[in-house]
Simulated scan of single mutants.
Amino acid sequence: MSVRIFSGGQRIESIPADDRGLAYGDGIFETMRAHGGELPWWDAHWQRLAHGAQRLGFPAPRQALVREQAQAMLEGGDGVLKLLVTRGSGARGYAPGVATPPTWVLSLHSLPPAPAQGLCLRWCQTRLSLQPALAGLKHCNRLEQVLARAEWNGSTGNPDPADEGLMRSTEGDVVCATAANLFVLQEGRWTTPPVDRCGVAGVCRGWLLAHADVREKRLSVTDVETAQAVFLCNAVRGILPVARLGAARTWPAHPLVAELQARLADAHPGFGRH
C-alpha cells in the first residue's frame, strides 16, 4: 500500500496525534476505482466529498492538488484509491474550535477479486441508527458497519460463509449492505431504499438513479425476500448480483441485472468485462 499524508497543502510524515479524525471520526472519505491511471468517476466522488465537508463545517482540500497527487500515485495503473479528509488538528473536547487546515490522506490499494458467482448474503443483527444530520454522508464513523461485519468474519465464532450482510435501521426497514447499496426488482422495476435517515449515498447508486428506471422506497424484510432479483453496488466493485439470502431465498441469474452490468461497463471502463 502506498500512502501520502497532507496538512492543507503541505505534505507531512504522519497523522498528528491530536487530529480530530483520529480522536472523534471527524472526517469523510471516498473510495474510488482507478483504471489506466484515471479516475472515471472523479467528479461524482469530489462532489460528494465537498458536500460532506460543507455539511460537517470544515474546508475541503484544494481539488487540483488532490487530483495531481492522486494521478501521480496511480502511475497509469489500476487500483483502489482512498481519499480521507479530516477537520485537522484540534484541542481535546468535542468543540471544533478555530479553523485549521484539513488533514488528508491518499492511499492506493489493490483491486478486490471479482466474485466467481452471485453473492451469498445474511441478515445482520447490528442496526443502523437514524440520524438525518449525517444521512447520506460517507463519514469516518463506521462503527455500526464494523460491528455488523464482525458478525461473520470469525471474530464472533460464526461460521457463516456469507459474502455480505444486509443492515436494517433501528425501525426495522432495510437500508443497505455493510459496504454497498441495495437494489431489488419488484414488479419489473428496480427499487432502492432512500438514504434520508441513515445509510450512504453511494456514487454507483447515484449513477443508477440517473441512468436506470429506479425508484426510492423504504423496503421491508419481506420486500427483499420476495423480490424478483437483488443486487448490491458500490463504486469499487460495481454491480454485484445476489444469488442467496440466508436460508430464505435463492435467485438465479437475471437478464435485467446483466443488462445493467453491461451499461455500467460502457460508462466506466474499470467495470468492463475482460
Rank of each mutant, 00 (worst) to 15 (best):
Q186D: 02
A243T: 09
R215L: 04
L74E: 06
R20W: 00
L245I: 11
A99Q: 15
T126I: 07
L166D: 01
V105F: 03
G188V: 11
A72I: 03
K217W: 08
L65M: 15
R33V: 10
E171W: 05
R127Q: 13
V174L: 07
W46A: 12
V195H: 14
S89M: 11
A162E: 03
E151N: 13
P194I: 06
H274C: 13
T191F: 01
G21P: 03
L81G: 03
A34S: 07
L209T: 05
V224R: 04
Q47C: 10
Q186H: 14
P132Y: 11
R87Y: 00
A267S: 15
V105D: 01
A135L: 05
N141D: 05
L256S: 15
D173M: 08
G136R: 10
D26M: 01
A180E: 12
G246R: 06
V236K: 12
A148H: 06
I28V: 13
A162C: 10
R20S: 04
L209Y: 04
R20T: 07
F29D: 02
E171L: 15
G88N: 08
A50Q: 12
P96D: 03
V146S: 08
W42M: 04
G90K: 05
Q71P: 00
C204W: 06
R92W: 15
I239L: 14
L134C: 02
R263Y: 06
T100L: 11
T100D: 00
S155A: 13
F6P: 08
V200W: 01
A114N: 14
L245N: 02
A72C: 11
L232H: 05
G52W: 03
V98G: 14
L128D: 06
I239V: 13
L264E: 11
I239Q: 07
S129T: 14
S129C: 14
G206I: 07
G188M: 09
L260E: 04
D223T: 03
L232P: 04
V236T: 14
H139N: 00
R205I: 04
L264V: 08
A253C: 09
A70L: 06
P61K: 12
D78Q: 04
A258D: 12
W190Y: 06
T100G: 06
S7T: 09
R168I: 00
E13W: 04
L119W: 04
E259G: 10
A114L: 15
P40N: 03
V146R: 05
P269C: 03
C140K: 00
Q131A: 15
A53L: 06
I28N: 01
A180V: 12
R168D: 05
R4H: 10
R189I: 00
M1N: 10
A91D: 10
R33N: 08
L39Q: 08
F271I: 11
R149Q: 13
A258V: 05
K82W: 08
R4I: 07
S14C: 03
G118W: 09
Q71Y: 11
C176D: 10
S89G: 04
G246N: 07
R142F: 02
N234A: 07
R11P: 07
V3N: 08
E187G: 12
T226P: 02
F231W: 03
L49P: 04
G93L: 08
G93E: 07
A150L: 11
G79R: 09
C140W: 00
A265H: 13
W251A: 04
V242I: 04
